[in-house]
Computed example of a mutant assay.
Amino acid sequence: MIEFEDIKAAHQRIKAHINHTPVVSSSLLNQWLGHEVYFKLELLQKVGAFKARGGCNAVQLLKERHPDIKRVVANSSGNHAQAVAWSAAKLGIPATIYMPTFASKVKAQATRAYGAEVVQLGTRQAVDQAVAEAAEQPGVYWIPPFNDEAVIAGQGTACLEALDQMVQPVDAVMAPCGGGGLISGTLVATRKLLPQALVMAAEPLAGDDAMRSYQSGVIQKLDSAPDTLADGAMTLSVGEKTFEHIRQLDDFFAVEEAPMIYWSQWLAHLLKLHVEPTSAMVMNAVCQWLRQQQQPRKVLVILTGGNIDAATMRTIWQHDHLQQIPDLGSSLC
């Protein structure tokens, strides 16, 4: 398990290269919900996602420890792919990224634009096998998307920054969970900086392996990639390293596709930004938790990314949900 000092060291290592993203809120949304929700805008991060933090930290550490490095490789459905490609390019290291064919087209295209070689394969299992084989070559180093200490520490810097930016303490911190790198780093940072705050995660109901792992105490695995708009949370299982953090969370929520679409529209409208469904789904988890509360609460949400391809955008906006104002009594909220 990583420690808070790992996150502090990661922040010192990467802060000159990443964006210090803002924390914002919507007074209108707070009025409607009767609670205060704050958003850490990692969709304004380099490569359009929080993944830049973990990728940057991991690539820099590899360069420091292995000066003779020849290439880095990674497996990802999108944002981690861009992060590793961008970070490797900054240090002049060749990169090969293995992606499933169902990955977001805009993310695959951006990964190539950062200078990486992209190899696309039909299944998540084929991608994982290919990257493992590539990493056996001399001088080639694998940067996993989440099950890696350097990646987890880098992702944790988003929460470290956010809690430092908050004028008043929050009652809870929430983030999405795919493989668990972000929520693991978020847990460590929050436990150190704001130990009284709850730390909770959200994932799509269609791919609820992490929540079932959390509930059972044993890592659960999916047989195939889940059918969900939350492409940043399509992992088949959490990692052994991230699971040790995940099992310490205060709660876990699964989110259906309809609320995911609803909040993708509403956050775009309220914040005037494109918000990935993987990020937007956290607001349904926030609402699930707020319904249980007897007094006003303050919640910090890490909005992880804003990279949306045309097909996903068409699905999100196929029907207008902006006629239904966010209300804790609504099933969509």
Rank of each mutant, 00 (worst) to 15 (best):
P259C: 07
G185S: 11
M234Q: 13
I14A: 03
M1R: 06
N284G: 02
I302D: 01
A189G: 09
N75E: 13
S184H: 05
I143R: 01
Y38S: 14
A130K: 14
Q45R: 03
Q265H: 06
A201G: 14
S216M: 12
K63S: 09
A126N: 07
T304H: 06
L41Q: 10
P277E: 06
T278V: 06
A254F: 03
A58H: 04
R191S: 13
Q215H: 13
A189Q: 04
Y214F: 15
L322E: 05
A108F: 01
I316R: 02
G92S: 05
E36H: 00
A230Q: 05
I152N: 05
Q324N: 13
S330R: 06
N57V: 12
A230D: 04
V127F: 04
D320E: 09
V167Q: 12
L91P: 04
A95R: 00
L249P: 04
T235F: 09
L322A: 11
A9T: 15
K107R: 15
Q215V: 07
A162W: 00
N307E: 10
G180K: 13
M283Y: 01
R13K: 13
G122T: 09
R13Y: 12
L182N: 08
P169W: 00
V173R: 01
Q165L: 10
V127C: 15
Q295Y: 11
H269V: 02
Y262T: 06
G217E: 10
H66E: 04
L193D: 07
S279P: 02
A113S: 14
R124D: 13
I308E: 07
L271E: 07
F102V: 10
P169I: 02
F146I: 15
A16P: 01
A153V: 13
A108W: 01
T123P: 01
M99Q: 10
Q288D: 05
Q125V: 11
L249G: 05
A268G: 08
S87V: 03
Q288Y: 03
K90V: 08
A311F: 12
N57Q: 11
P138A: 05
Q318K: 15
Q318W: 03
G154F: 11
E117C: 02
A110Q: 14
P67T: 13
R112C: 04
R212V: 02
Q45S: 06
V119H: 03
R297P: 00
I308P: 01
A150V: 11
A126C: 03
D231F: 08
L182H: 10
A113V: 00
A113W: 00
N79E: 09
A153C: 08
Q165N: 05
L332N: 14
E117R: 05
M260V: 12
P100C: 12
Y141M: 11
G329H: 12
A254C: 08
H80Y: 11
V37H: 00
F253V: 09
A158L: 10
M260C: 15
N57L: 09
A110T: 11
S264F: 04
D68H: 12
A310N: 06
V188N: 10
A116D: 01
E5Q: 15
L328W: 02
Q220A: 11
V170F: 00
Q125S: 12
I93L: 05
H35L: 02
L62R: 03
P226N: 07
G178A: 11
E36K: 00
